[in-house]
């Protein structure tokens, strides 16, 4: 069965293929991930080349034959030039990509994730606190894919005085429940970190600039989201995050 498709999408990954083609992974609003070949896209005279470059948002046309889909047309909406021009922003742009790519299953449908990545790329040059934007992005992404960690009180009894975070349970536990049931204490969180996580989960990503936080709280939250991603989604150390660390060291 062959057919022509149209979809709004973001370019997640792009690798050279064969003599002069590129193999592109798109994240599309209506069909989830689409892997497609952009024929001749490495040639300088290609009409497709600029539309399938990384960090591109556009309306794409595909032809789905029996093999891999082909990119047949593109209308670029935005290409986020600053992500390639600013060496500091560059790996952050990729972190959004890497996390979205690993969180969205091959055949899954996540229009919210598309919108979050797009919003993230837009916010990167505006936000002063990049690590905080990343934490907010992680939480909103988990929320939109149904894996939201719980910070609103004790998961077991609802008590508001909960400060123990259990990664396997996916949220906070109060000291009593933790003692009683022998839950593993993964993190003993500061109240400020819990408040930060709650605010980030409640606010839309675009409001992250109004949030004030301390470096220590951001670091604590980073450890929580990191081990949460590892435990529940088997998302291990991420290349782009290692890259960011190596630049800031």
């Amino acid at each position: 069965m062959s057919r022509y498709l149209k979809d709004e999408a973001l370019v997640l990954k792009s690798y050279p293929l064969g003599e002069s083609d590129r193999l592109i992974t798109f994240l599309s609003w209506n069909r989830g991930k689409i892997v497609a070949v952009a024929k001749g896209a490495r040639k300088t005279k290609s009409k497709l080349a600029s539309g399938v470059d990384l960090f591109t948002h556009g309306n794409y046309q595909f032809y789905q034959g029996r093999g891999l889909a082909l990119v047949t047309g593109v209308e670029v909406k935005d290409r986020f030039i600053y992500l390639r021009q600013d060496p500091e922003l560059y790996p952050y742009g990729f972190y959004l990509v890497e996390l979205a790519d690993r969180l969205v299953p091959e055949s899954g449908l996540c229009p919210e994730v598309c919108s979050l990545v797009l919003e993230g790329w837009r916010l990167l040059p505006e936000v002063e606190n990049l690590p905080l934007l990343i934490r907010a992005f992680e939480l909103k992404l988990l929320q939109s894919t149904g894996y939201s960690p719980f910070f609103e009180g004790c998961l077991q009894c609802g008590a508001s005085q909960a400060t123990v975070f259990s990664v396997s349970r996916g949220g906070l536990i109060c000291p009593e429940c933790s003692n009683e049931r022998g839950f593993k204490v993964d993190f003993l969180l500061q109240p400020g970190t819990i408040a930060l996580a709650r605010v980030l989960l409640r606010l839309p990503l675009g409001r992250v600039q109004v949030v004030r936080s301390r470096h220590k709280q951001e670091q604590e939250l980073a450890r929580v989201t990191g081990s949460f991603l590892r435990y529940h989604l088997q998302i291990g150390p991420m290349n782009s995050l290692k890259y960011i660390d190596s630049l800031t060291r």
């Binding site: 002069s20 005279k45 290609s46 600029s50």
Partner: peptide, 10 residues
Amino acid sequence: LPVGGDLEYA
């Protein structure tokens, strides 16, 4: 040099 292409094909 148009955006997106590879130098070796210019």
